[in-house]
Design a protein around this nucleic acid. Structure first.
Length: 602
DNA sequence: ACGCGATGCGCC
DNA sequence: AAAGGGCGCATCGCGT
């Protein structure tokens, strides 16, 4: 089959509109290029999207632009993705960089990799795109040519529009001989995620201003006060050299240090310093973080988080705002609301990464106690807690249900063990890890707990050993090929290696679920018609759903997510729970009344 | 003025 | 033998 490269030129992307109005489309196949004005572009795209193979650089953008012009295009785009007829040169390059181990740093350029078409043209073709920058660059000026027949366009404008399609095609020719196993899945996930970005997520103006006021009340007086002690400058910035000196003296000359050897100024260090001024500063640090990092991004009626479909482990990331790290405490999440007439459906996988780990262990060693526990329908944290208390699972359940204090503590520790230890941490590090959860344990206790955990799931010893051997054999880091997805990742060390196999598998399943859910929402007649996905947070999808049938729709979201993940975890029972909410709450749980889901509230 | 490394911290 | 991983973003301080 012949791929055809396309590229659109559009009005400028503006806040709240990630799919702006189309101006023209260019295409390239072989050595032929062609430019289509608005009407011709729509007609030509309609032809192409039915059954042709299409390649683009960040193609989800162009496809969304097209779908924004003509309603009927959307189902055709999903069909094209389903038939494997879409190729994205940007995503291919990301897979290539990850496979080489260069995703964070490319030793050939001495920098983090860049994924613009321009930079791909440099690496693949050793050419530079002319007319991209400079005063007469048309790149950002195509709105001026809207409604003008292309015949009357300046030559430079025509040339630039054609060049992008041509370069995309030439890069593609060099990429296509190098297929990656998850390539098509990445393309599909990117489309699902881009639709989320375009739709955006609404904010509640009153909630935002209320939050802002409250945080200012908490922070401002303290900051003002600390100015007199030179801890805060008159400009409002922190004076770190003064703070570090105070930390040093407070800790009797041997203060906690950072990785690179400077005096730590972390809030926890300040809090335990015994110095009232530092303690005061620490007391507002969380609120300051909220005020400076999160509140400013909430100032629009709708925000449009961007998603990066692919980071090293196969996970996604998000920015502007990063919808994947919104604080659980402090009222930030509660500023996000569904549009009028809707509830949020929030559906997340139950212990997703542990299920993936169990599947990986089972595949690798032919047996897994962790898998057996999950297959038996056991609650995994209580299973681990039973290991800590050296009793049977049934006994742990009985004690826990009876409100036994020891059992409750054991389960809390169990959660930390289950979450922390699969990443290969030492018992020493586990002490710090537990402290992050507000639990103080000695290193001896950590050692005992780790041993108990490994005894409960002995196959994990083999898992760590196997990763360790790969590291040792290949000089500290190795090339990981995921046994079930085929995903390739270079430069993997011990800890990231331990993490990689299960984190990747969860990501792969959840991303496929993003696509399936998006399809069910956006394609007319789909099972989730009327719903709109608004956020994806690694193992959780949040959607808007019309209130009237939100309960039924929530069940369908569960079904789709479970069915999809189940394909990646064939031997582990997958669970996912959907809850309804009137705004985004952390910890919302399914609440049922008369057999139907109703919104959870705190 | 801007770039950059280090630090710290939010999430899963 | 030992080893949390994956991110994005704000701030500070230093350098060009």
């Amino acid at each position: 089959m012949d791929y055809i490269a396309i590229d659109t030129e559009t009005h400028l992307i503006e806040p709240g509109n990630l799919a702006p109005k189309l101006v023209c489309m260019s295409e390239c196949v072989g050595v032929k290029t062609k430019l289509y004005g608005y009407d011709d572009a729509l007609e030509r795209f309609y032809e192409l999207i039915q059954d042709q193979y299409i390649v683009g650089h960040n193609i989800a953008y162009d496809l969304a632009v097209m779908c924004n012009e003509v309603d009927g295009f959307l189902p055709l785009v999903f069909k094209a993705y389903d038939e494997g007829r879409i190729w994205d040169t940007m995503i291919h390059e990301k897979l290539r960089m990850i496979s080489l181990g260069y995703s964070r740093f490319n030793p050939q350029t001495g920098r983090p990799p860049r994924y613009t078409l321009e930079s791909l043209v440099e690496t693949y073709l050793d050419e530079s795109i002319e007319g991209k920058h400079g005063e007469d660059a048309w790149r950002l000026r195509y709105a001026e040519l809207d409604n003008i027949p292309t015949e009357r366009w300046p030559n430079a404008a025509k040339r630039y529009a054609l060049l992008d399609a041509e370069y995309t095609y030439r890069v593609f020719l060099l990429q296509r001989c190098n297929e990656f196993p998850t390539l098509r899945d990445q393309f599909k996930a990117a489309w699902g995620l881009h639709l989320m970005s375009c739709w955006g997520i609404a904010t509640d103006k009153e909630a935002v201003s209320g939050l802002e006021t409250r945080l200012h009340q908490s922070v401002d007086a303290v900051i003002e006060d600390l100015k007199s002690d030179n801890i805060i400058r008159s400009t409002g910035s922190k004076n770190l050299s003064v703070i570090r000196e105070l930390v040093t003296t407070s800790y009797g000359g041997s203060p906690p240090m950072t990785a690179k050897g400077s005096v730590s100024t972390a809030a926890s260090v300040l809090k335990d310093s015994g110095n009232p001024l530092l303690e005061k500063l620490a007391s507002v640090s969380a609120d300051q973080k909220l005020l400076n990092t999160y509140v400013p991004l909430l100032q629009k009626p709708t925000v449009n988080p961007r998603f990066n479909v692919l980071v090293a482990s196969g996970r996604t990331s998000s920015s502007n705002p990063n919808i994947q790290n919104q604080p659980r405490k402090g009222g930030v999440r509660e500023c996000f609301v569904p549009r009028p007439g809707n509830y949020f459906i929030a559906c997340d996988y139950h212990v997703a990464e542990l299920c993936s780990l169990a599947q990986v262990l089972l595949d690798q060693f032919g047996m897994s106690k962790m898998a057996e526990a999950l297959q038996a329908g056991r609650e995994l944290h209580l299973e681990t807690a039973a290991g800590i208390m050296a009793c049977s699972y049934e006994e742990a359940v009985r004690l826990h249900e009876a409100g036994d204090k020891e059992a409750k503590e054991a389960r809390q520790l169990a959660k930390m063990l289950n979450f922390g230890l699969p990443g290969g941490i030492s018992s020493r590090t586990f002490v710090d890890f537990a402290r992050g959860y507000g639990v103080e344990i000695t290193e001896e206790r950590a050692q005992m707990l780790k041993q108990a955990w490994l005894s409960r799931y002995p196959e994990i010893n083999l898992y760590f050993e196997a990763v360790g051997i790969r590291c040792a054999e290949e000089g500290g880091s190795f090339f990981a090929v995921h046994p079930s997805t085929g995903f390739e990742r270079g430069g993997v060390g011990f800890c990231d290696g331990c993490n990689h196999y299960f984190q990747h598998l969860t990501a792969a399943g959840a991303k496929e679920a993003v696509y399936q859910v998006a399809k069910a929402c956006w394609v007319p007649g789909g099972k989730l018609e009327g719903c709109k996905p608004v956020a994806f947070i690694h193992d959780e999808i949040i959607l808007e759903a019309p209130k009237e049938n939100a309960s039924d729709l929530a069940k369908i979201v569960e079904e789709i997510m479970i069915e999809t993940m189940q394909k990646f975890l064939p031997d582990i029972p997958v669970k996912a729970d959907a809850a309804l909410m009137e705004r985004w709450y952390k910890g919302a749980e399914p609440v049922t009344k008369d057999g139907r889901l109703i919104p959870w509230s705190p």
